[in-house]
Design a binder for these strands. Structure first.
Lengths: 335, 335
DNA sequence: CTAAATTACTAACACGATTTAGTAACACGA
DNA sequence: TCGTGTTACTAAATCGTGTTAGTAATTTAG
């Protein structure tokens, strides 16, 4: 920086003013041009460490997640976050922790050491979490997860709406006997989608029939088994809502084995819009997409707002936002 | 740090010596304990910016990739890299650039601004790249890609060996008429796997038959079409090697439609060991896994070595390593 | 018993920026 | 002519650490 100053015939201070576009410094355009030319000439590159040290801003967001990469969803979340951050000149510092609580703590502390401006704490499926206390030292957004007391802002998929939209679509298509195969574990997706399913039925004044709902494991195998079970009776459902695309894939197998055609004999709708399954099945699977990319980008967006509020001193002690994002309906040919 | 020093009744320098475990400072254990206790007491956290600024080491690796997250593979690469880095107290600074060359340049420069100790430049399928020149300012490893003049170290899957292993396995199972459906585009995977296929045939003295090889698009649809074509004649192949699992998925459809059972009538082998396809198909797909996780971890490992050499001044002007990693053979039930 | 070496520290500079406080020169209005 | 304001800068302090050079006290060697 001193070299640039020398070449431009000004002081280091002036160079800083020009590079940071400090209006109040009243540097005439002519001088600015001289400085900028000198910087380019010398291929000057500002040292972000020094800059961050002095200004107490690193333009860096810590991204902690439990199993960053072991699911295909994960990528889209990171991508959404990264791209939104990039637009605002922020970068992501990545840590994935596995399910080790101690490691989560070290992860957060490591990020705090690095003076990140904020932290995104993400999980790879919608659930409750207990992040380490030190996370509160810095603005934080929870992604695809939440804390029970809602003391931290959070963004998750709107499971109820998703279940409702899927079921309601089937109802609009004229179906009255709609089966639902679901995860046996009572995670938020289970609870929410089931609630949405019931809500749509209620609105259409179709009585809820517990025999049309089956619970099992969320694999292709599980989908196969549950579908076989639900469609064993002669008085069959005409539509099937699957908890996820993997189960839908299994449902396809089971229905084919029963010589039932999709969507003519049975309409099938999935959940997740999973790459390399949903679109590739034959017929293409109609499904609800999870807003992974959007959650990533929303999280960064909200986080940047919190950060700028803290830096302006305009922090409010209002209740942290609990955002739910809509699951887009993806129409293909199975329903 | 000054506070810690005060509480421990020593100078700031001593605190620094203790925290950095500087042997040559000869601090007695007793004093060390006092300092460490004070640090814990005050919940002291070292400022990584200041530390990095002074020591010119950030313990940070820049990770640039073209489409970080849009493929399910990507995650595993990042995971491998991240976990290996974490073990050595390094973190990953993430940027994904899309296919925009200008953006790649800014990405690299942004990382250099941040004083990263090294850069990993990754692509999401094996190919040649032209990274911006400024990348050479810092140790760099190419991941799943390479530069034509081999002037940068690189790690890629061993495509030839992969094709060879798959084909050879089928041969060992007694097959002589082995079909191969392949990507029409001449990417390294196309060239390598085809070469491996031919090599295995040659070794077994099975003449290469061009009619057994078909080229098309690498989707399920493509696999379906090519398989249908290759198995249209009455004199059918008894085994099918697929360029990837998606095509294998299509092959399953086509073979089922022809009433051919897998693996009894036709043995099928895929490539990629793709999550949610390979294991979930029925029968489970025997396939070649891509060493994504290993490439990530190898890249970091090698990069750290380059970094430490540079920092020791023991850099050698030897030819950059071009590493090929084996694709593990995953035995399931389709072959 | 003295010189040299070792122990156990500390003062002060350096890393490369940002930012505050200030100054010299000039313009302008009264 | 004086005082005030504005313009166009700069000197110096600061961010929080790492590191070198040095020092006083103690131990060791001869």
């Amino acid at each position: 920086m001193q070299d640039v100053a020398n070449l431009a015939g000004v002081s280091r201070t002036t160079v800083s003013f020009v590079l940071n576009k400090v209006e109040s410094a009243n540097i005439p355009t002519e001088t600015q041009d001289r400085v900028l030319a000198a910087a380019k000439e010398l291929n000057y590159r500002r040292n972000a460490l020094a800059s961050g040290l002095r200004s107490q801003k690193t333009h860096t967001i810590g991204f902690v997640s439990d199993v960053i990469a072991s699911t295909p969803y994960a990528g889209r979340v990171v991508q959404g976050a990264q791209e939104r951050a990039w637009e605002e000149n922020y970068l992501l510092l990545l840590v994935n922790t596995g399910n080790n609580q101690a490691m989560k703590k070290t992860a957060v502390e490591t990020l705090l050491d690095r003076q990140v401006d904020g932290i995104i704490y993400a999980t790879m499926y919608h659930r409750e979490v207990h992040p380490p206390a030190s996370i509160r030292e810095v603005p934080t957004v929870l992604l695809d997860c939440f804390v029970a007391d809602q003391a931290l802002p959070s963004v998750v998929p709107d499971e109820v709406l998703g279940g409702y939209t899927a079921t309601n679509y089937l109802i609009q298509q004229g179906h009255r006997k709609i089966a639902f195969i679901c995860d046996a574990v009572k995670v938020p997706a289970h609870v929410g989608r089931l609630a949405g399913y019931k809500k749509a039925l209620a609105e259409a004044e179709i009585p809820f029939d517990a025999d049309l709902v089956a619970f099992g494991v969320t694999t292709q195998q599980g989908g196969r088994d549950l579908t076989r079970k639900l469609f064993a009776h002669p008085d069959r459902p005409t539509a099937l809502f699957c908890y996820n695309d993997r189960m839908a894939m299994g449902a396809y197998d089971a229905l084919h084995a029963l010589n039932l055609s999709i969507p003519n004999d049975v309409a099938v709708i999935g959940f997740d819009d999973q790459d390399l399954i949903a679109a590739d099945l034959d017929p293409g699977l109609t499904t609800m997409a999870l807003p992974h990319y959007d959650m990533g980008s929303w999280a960064v967006n909200h986080l940047l707002e919190l950060i700028s509020r803290r830096q302006n001193g305009t922090e409010q002690a209002s209740k942290p936002k609990q955002q739910m994002l809509e699951c887009p309906f993806i129409k293909r040919n199975s329903a």
